[in-house]
Design a binder for these strands. Structure first.
Ligand SMILES: [Mn+2]
Ligand SMILES: [Mn+2]
Ligand SMILES: [Zn+2]
Ligand SMILES: [Zn+2]
Lengths: 138, 138
DNA sequence: AATACAATGCAACATTGTTGCAAAATATTG
DNA sequence: CAATATTTTGCAACAATGTTGCATTGTATT
């Protein structure tokens, strides 16, 4: 597991630092998506807030994690699958936010449906966010 | 048009105030969705920021406007259709955000597809946000 | 017009995110 | 391995966005 972390950083030409190792580890062990807030707390005040912001930004740029749009003003992040790299994301799965426990799930096996738009609109990305109750809170 | 505004407020049992009239008017004339920022500027510094926040919150609760999840941490709001009322929203249309001009459109005639989830998940709401280029920026 | 009720403005605070820059850590080179 | 070049970090300062309590003002009701 620890090797996976270092491998991932190297594969993406990132230097190996404590914060990057720790934050990547948090994502690997996380059940759902993480917000900046979660990372700041789960890392035990080990790193500066700014470092966390910059690390998340770097990970998104490298295609290690992806963002999930929300209506509650706090961006969530989750691990990408292997085929995301260097700004080219291929996360075409549906996201689920539980109204009860707040957990955000990547439903990797539920692909986003194709939506046909009126003439003149060009599609770059389609995000599907479903809210409701998760299997734990049902 | 002015009568529509007062009617809408009365229908929702809201008292008629300057800020509510003005903000509702902005939505009626707006082409796309509005963020708090837009309203603060378009209303010409006429109302306190707090008043705008509270008015938006009230309008959402009453089913006059609905929120649109975004990936950029600034909630957008847009007018609901007539069948939304008192917390029960029926906005099952797709939203589009232009990468170029930033305009957020309610595609009222594009309904969100039904997505079937794994066992144990219950759906309350499905949001579809598509990004790309709009017909003006194509 | 008098009263009851609700909305507003202000101040103060909380949260989230950004930028510049010196210090520290990491990677590279000989 | 040590010296150097390059990156990353932490700090400070700031900006944007959102929330709460409370006195004042405005709206609705009688
Ligand atoms: Mn995901
Ligand atoms: Mn809409
Ligand atoms: Zn849950
Ligand atoms: Zn556009």
């Amino acid at each position: 597991m620890h090797q996976t972390i270092i491998d991932t950083l190297k594969r993406n030409q990132l230097s190996i630092t404590d914060s990057r190792k720790k934050i990547l580890e948090l994502f690997l062990h996380a059940k759902g998506a993480l917000a900046h807030f979660d990372i700041e707390h789960q890392s035990g005040a080990e790193f500066d807030r700014v470092t966390i912001y910059r690390t998340l930004q770097t990970f998104v740029e490298k295609g290690i994690i992806h963002t999930i749009p929300t209506a509650d003003n706090s961006i969530r992040y989750a691990l990408c699958k292997d085929d995301c790299a260097n700004g080219h994301h291929h996360d075409d799965h549906v996201h689920f936010m539980c109204d009860d426990c707040g957990t955000t799930y990547c439903l990797d096996h539920v692909t986003v449906p194709q939506v046909s738009l009126p003439n003149g609109f060009t599609v770059t990305q389609t995000d599907v966010i479903i809210s409701g109750k998760c299997m734990k809170c049902a």
